[in-house]
Amino acid sequence: MATVTFVDESTAGARTPAWALRIFEERLTLRELIRRRIHQEVAECNAAASAPRRLLVQRTPTERTLNGEPAERSRRRIDPERQVALAEEAFTRNGFVVLVGDRQVEELDDEVDLRRDTEVTFLKLVPLVGG
Results as ranks from 00 to 15, higher is better:
residue 96 F to H: 06
residue 16 T to I: 05
residue 78 I to Q: 09
residue 60 T to S: 15
residue 92 T to V: 13
residue 57 V to W: 07
residue 73 R to C: 11
residue 12 A to V: 08
residue 24 F to T: 14
residue 89 E to N: 04
residue 67 N to T: 08
residue 23 I to M: 14
residue 67 N to Y: 09
residue 74 S to Y: 01
residue 129 V to C: 00
residue 79 D to L: 03
residue 53 R to E: 00
residue 71 A to K: 12
residue 20 A to W: 02
residue 123 L to T: 12
residue 17 P to Y: 05
residue 22 R to Q: 14
residue 119 E to R: 14
residue 65 T to M: 10
residue 104 Q to L: 14
residue 96 F to Y: 15
residue 15 R to W: 05
residue 123 L to S: 10
residue 73 R to L: 14
residue 68 G to E: 06
residue 22 R to I: 02
residue 95 G to N: 02
residue 63 E to C: 02
residue 78 I to G: 06
residue 25 E to G: 00
residue 102 D to V: 15
residue 64 R to V: 03
residue 47 A to G: 04
residue 45 C to W: 12
residue 87 A to M: 05
residue 32 E to I: 06
residue 6 F to H: 06
residue 71 A to I: 12
residue 73 R to P: 05
residue 60 T to D: 00
residue 101 G to I: 07
residue 98 V to L: 09
residue 122 F to Y: 13
residue 3 T to M: 08
residue 17 P to R: 15
residue 93 R to C: 08
residue 43 A to Q: 09
residue 52 P to Y: 13
residue 56 L to V: 05
residue 21 L to V: 07
residue 110 D to A: 15
residue 30 L to P: 11
residue 124 K to N: 06
residue 93 R to I: 05
residue 27 R to I: 04
residue 103 R to V: 15
residue 119 E to M: 09
residue 47 A to Y: 04
residue 45 C to F: 01
residue 104 Q to M: 12
residue 66 L to V: 03
residue 79 D to A: 04
residue 48 A to Y: 02
residue 12 A to S: 13
residue 27 R to W: 06
residue 112 V to T: 07
residue 3 T to N: 13
residue 68 G to P: 08
residue 31 R to W: 05
residue 73 R to K: 13
residue 114 L to T: 03
residue 77 R to H: 10
residue 129 V to F: 14
residue 57 V to T: 14
residue 51 A to M: 14
residue 115 R to L: 14
residue 8 D to V: 12
residue 19 W to V: 00
residue 101 G to P: 08
residue 65 T to N: 03
residue 29 T to G: 08
residue 47 A to N: 01
residue 60 T to G: 04
residue 30 L to C: 07
residue 80 P to V: 07
residue 12 A to Y: 09
residue 73 R to A: 14
residue 129 V to Q: 07
residue 55 L to D: 01
residue 34 I to H: 03
residue 65 T to A: 12
residue 124 K to V: 13
residue 48 A to G: 02
residue 55 L to Q: 07
residue 2 A to D: 00
residue 4 V to K: 03
residue 59 R to C: 03
residue 78 I to P: 08
residue 83 Q to W: 00
residue 126 V to R: 11
residue 43 A to V: 01
residue 81 E to C: 04
residue 117 D to T: 07
residue 82 R to N: 08
residue 121 T to P: 00
residue 112 V to E: 10
residue 8 D to I: 10
residue 26 E to S: 15
residue 32 E to V: 11
residue 122 F to R: 08
residue 89 E to H: 06
residue 45 C to H: 14
residue 95 G to A: 04
residue 68 G to H: 05
residue 108 L to M: 11
residue 114 L to C: 01
residue 92 T to I: 12
residue 84 V to W: 02
residue 101 G to Q: 10
residue 91 F to N: 09
residue 55 L to F: 01
residue 63 E to I: 01
residue 117 D to H: 15
residue 80 P to L: 08
residue 26 E to L: 07
residue 37 R to H: 07
residue 68 G to F: 05
residue 93 R to T: 11
residue 69 E to Q: 13
residue 128 L to H: 11
residue 87 A to S: 04
residue 34 I to Y: 04
residue 29 T to E: 10
residue 40 Q to Y: 01
residue 49 A to H: 06
residue 3 T to A: 03
residue 51 A to F: 09
residue 114 L to R: 02
residue 100 V to W: 08
residue 7 V to C: 11
residue 109 D to R: 11
residue 92 T to R: 15
residue 35 R to G: 13
residue 88 E to K: 01
residue 59 R to A: 04
residue 91 F to T: 06
residue 89 E to F: 02
residue 99 L to D: 08
